[in-house]
């Protein structure tokens, strides 16, 4: 399956989705002008991945900041991941960033998928 690799910019996160190497990661800052547009390739990739996923998947969110329009799309991503067997979300946050920790907790309450919290 094709790798989705987007370099991060000052207002969009770095995205690396690589089935072969088992790397699934969204990291950095997310405040694009058009969040729907930006996350569409990610949602499309996940849709294809869901047809034939690895036996287990650890999907990492290592976000430093995201705006509210991105938060809606992150929820859409999580909902797309929800139905994949063997899925686990790893939610990273800076150890003194309570807001990011809380954001992860809130997402975990909104979807039915296991979350693991890690600091970086």
């Amino acid at each position: 399956m094709e790798i989705l690799n987007l370099e991060g910019t000052e207002d969009t996160p770095k995205i690396l989705l690589d089935k072969g190497n088992g790397i699934f990661e969204i990291s950095g800052r997310s405040l694009p002008e058009d969040s729907t547009d930006f996350y569409q390739p990610v949602l499309d990739w996940i849709e294809t991945y869901a047809e034939d996923p690895n036996p287990s998947t650890e999907f990492a969110f290592k976000l430093e900041y995201f705006n509210t329009a991105s938060s809606k799309l992150i929820l859409d991503v999580l909902m797309a991941l929800e139905d994949i067997d063997g899925m686990k979300i790893i939610w990273y946050f800076d150890e003194d960033d309570e807001d990011m920790e809380e954001a992860g907790e809130e997402f975990s309450e909104l979807v039915e998928v296991p979350f693991e919290f890690k600091t970086y």
């Binding site: 002008e33 058009d34 729907t36 509210t68 329009a69 809606k72």
Partner: peptide
């Protein structure tokens, strides 16, 4: 927090690109 969760569950991104969460988020943060 409850208001934020209820909006994010039901909202769709408007044509303007907003999620309707801006004020709530500003108050929370």
């Amino acid at each position: 927090k409850e208001l934020y969760k209820s909006i994010i569950k039901s909202t769709t991104i408007s044509e303007k690109g907003g999620a309707g969460l801006g004020f709530v988020d500003m108050a929370r943060k």
